[in-house]
Design a protein around this nucleic acid. Sequence first.
DNA 1: TCGGTACCTGTCCAAAAGTACAATGTATGG
DNA 2: CCATACATTGTACTTTTGGACAGGTACCGA
Lengths: 209, 209
Amino acid sequence: MEQLFITPSGDLKDRWQQAFPQAKAVVEVASIGEATAAARGIVWLDISQMDDSEKTASVAAAAAFGCPVVVMAATPNEGEAFALMNSGSVGYCHVKAVPAQLREIALVVEHGGLWVPPELMQRFVKLSLRVVPTPAPTQPELNELTARELMVAEQVAHGASNREIAEALDITERTVKAHLSAIFEKMEVRDRVQLALAMNNIPTYTTVN
Amino acid sequence: MEQLFITPSGDLKDRWQQAFPQAKAVVEVASIGEATAAARGIVWLDISQMDDSEKTASVAAAAAFGCPVVVMAATPNEGEAFALMNSGSVGYCHVKAVPAQLREIALVVEHGGLWVPPELMQRFVKLSLRVVPTPAPTQPELNELTARELMVAEQVAHGASNREIAEALDITERTVKAHLSAIFEKMEVRDRVQLALAMNNIPTYTTVN
DNA sequence: TCGGTACCTGTCCAAAAGTACAATGTATGG
DNA sequence: CCATACATTGTACTTTTGGACAGGTACCGA
């Protein structure tokens, strides 16, 4: 797997070279295109010299190329991590991470994982739990749904229209409506918007019929 | 690294054997102690046959031994994932995951990573963002909204109907529609469902007009 | 004062969503 | 074999949404 380092200085740090003898370095995010044209690799983004707005922009730009982006920050902190992970990066570490750790991160990221410092990892899970009222058994109502209803509900949860659902499941729009009526009742929501939110564990103001 | 499968049937599934020729299987969580006394390994927990209360208990018990616990669910879903990750597991996959994927998961977990299906990974980050005051503007489009439009958008984000929004803001339904039209355009969504999802940082299938 | 912007509203219309009532076929378990 | 649940579709109707076209007012900076 190719390793591409984007850094203001344009040269490879020794520790990067140690971690990945084959690593390459470029100065601008724009250069990723050619650099990764052939082999898909991990993009390591050194944001230590950037200002805040530039950080998110760079991450988004790099992520747009489709390769996993690992951010290397000078002073890793929670807020920045959240913002950048949200912009599309799949890794967040210290810019001075040692070679051994870089390799571990690469391993995790290569295999579809997401790497953040252990303490942050815990925070992600904990914070998520604060949003999701962790109904131990998810949505009790969700269990009442039949297989077919669940399929429809999941489509709605992703913003699909009746027509799209009908095509996806190869049934009539009428049938989709039939399923939806049943779903609304079981899930105790009044329309597709509330259903979409409920499916994503987001509470609504007016659950009142 | 030793691989230990905890499963109700007590025997190794072929695909597990394929993924890890050295894998062992036990029936009860309690058996982990002896099985992992010497070599620390990954504990794979098959929860497909468990009821909800048993799931969290098993994960907690297994995690207590200090080894990374990967949960294998029959029907992976967000709520369950949250609950079990919170109970101490570091992985969550489908019980019928193919050998190749199992090995990937093992790689990630071994190196201190946390593995969940890609969609869930995004959710963890997104959900966390709802709790943490986002330093950078999450939705660049959100900034384009005027004060009034933002009010309307927020109502929709919580499942309100046009009539409700009109009453809440003390304006006509017609005006609500006018604001909505502007919002749809700026936020690049096609209807209120997608808007509601977008406002909650949840991606939609069909971003295509 | 002029132009731009936000805000508000109206009428009219078309599409989408949702409900009511009804019917058919399949599968499954007692 | 029958009851029941599920999936499917039909017709018809009401409500909700969203957009097109066409206005008003108020405020603010050039």
